[in-house]
Simulated assay, not measured.
Amino acid sequence: MEVKKPLPPFTHETAMQKVQMAEDAWNSRNPEKVSLAYSVDTEWRNRDKFIKGREGVVQFLSDKWNKELDYKLKKELWAFTDNKIAVRFEYEYHDTNGQWYRAYGNENWEFDEYGFMKKRYASINDLPIDEKDRRMK
């Protein structure tokens, strides 16, 4: 069986590693690469969308990054337990009209015994910003 280290149960150090790995993967804006961190049968809630499976993740992220241009993300470990991690995040992007946004949110993650994320629940709010107010460049 394939594994995605670090494995649960998490320590502060391994939880921080998982968060950094997720940030790096999402900033690649490569849906196929990102999907490999999730279990084959992963379940997501992202805002008002419900996504199932890696194929659903690839489709969702492809659509997302076709609309959210020049996407840049920063994640921060908020809390962790044996196989769960909570993060706070923000990211910036612009739409096809050039309007910049900063999105703020929280995610709750649950991992299987092989280190793959089997559940991801995200609550996100977008704030329009001026390009001069960007923090992530």
Rank of each mutant, 00 (worst) to 15 (best):
G56C: 00
A37D: 05
K84Q: 04
V58Q: 04
E76D: 11
K74D: 08
N30Y: 01
Y71L: 06
G105T: 07
V58K: 04
I124R: 10
E23H: 01
S28C: 00
Q99S: 04
A122L: 08
E43A: 02
T14F: 02
E13N: 06
N66K: 10
E76M: 13
A86Q: 05
K72S: 07
K132P: 00
R135I: 13
S62G: 01
K18C: 07
R135N: 09
K74P: 00
D41Q: 13
N108T: 04
L7H: 05
P8D: 03
D82G: 08
D48M: 12
K118C: 11
M1S: 11
K74W: 03
Y121F: 14
K84M: 01
E55H: 08
V3I: 10
R47T: 15
Y114G: 05
E107F: 02
I129A: 10
N66P: 10
E68G: 05
L61A: 13
E131H: 15
S62H: 10
Y121K: 11
L77N: 07
R120S: 11
D133I: 09
F60Q: 14
E110S: 09
A103E: 03
D41Y: 08
P31T: 08
R102S: 03
N125T: 02
S62K: 07
E90K: 08
G105D: 11
N27V: 09
R88A: 12
G105I: 03
K49A: 04
D130Q: 01
W65A: 03
Q59D: 13
D48A: 06
K64T: 09
D70G: 09
K64R: 06
P128D: 10
Q17K: 06
Q59Y: 02
K84L: 03
R45L: 04
K137R: 13
G98F: 08
Y91W: 10
Y38A: 13
M16E: 06
